[in-house]
């Protein structure tokens, strides 16, 4: 089925879906900073436990981001027509543009979430 004949669902027109992955990144980032600060200030326990909690949050965030990346990859539908230029005002081009942008944002968010977790692996202490 050619791209232009594929169904164009409301979700395909959603800008919000496109930026969901960076939103997961933002929430994860806030969680890592806020949780570590409170954990260390309140002396809730060993820094090792903190580091594991952050890693768990990271795995959750990465799973969400991978799920979104797959959804956006499908919406981009690159394998169908190898199309990566979306400059026409048609449903297909809008759908594939948003999918393409969302997919790349998801990849960026994946790397970013890993990067903001790395300090927790290395620091090793609350000091």
């Amino acid at each position: 089925m050619a791209g232009r004949d594929k169904p164009d669902l409301p979700a395909h027109r959603s800008l919000f879906r496109t930026i969901l992955a960076p939103t997961v990144w933002a929430v994860h980032f806030l969680f890592v900073y806020g949780f570590s600060a409170v954990w260390c200030a309140k002396d809730w326990g060993a820094a090792g436990t903190l580091s594991w909690s952050i890693t768990a949050a990271t795995l959750l965030a990465l799973a969400l981001i991978v799920g979104l990346a797959v959804a956006m990859w499908r919406q981009w539908d690159y394998m169908d027509d190898n199309d990566y230029i979306h400059d026409l005002s048609t449903d297909e081009h809008r759908r594939e543009f948003l999918g393409h942008a969302g997919f790349m944002l998801a990849c960026l968010s994946f790397v970013a979430v890993v990067f903001s977790t790395m300090p927790a692996w290395f620091a090793g202490t609350c000091l």
Binding site: F115, M118, F122, L127
Partner: peptide, 26 residues
């Protein structure tokens, strides 16, 4: 534009972070 910066930045970040525990030793 994608693979190289990701690999290089991961390496640099890892190296930079690896010296942190010593810097904060009691």
């Amino acid at each position: 534009g994608v693979v190289l910066p990701t690999v290089v930045l991961s390496g640099l970040l890892g190296y930079g972070l690896s010296i942190m525990p010593d810097q904060r030793a009691p």
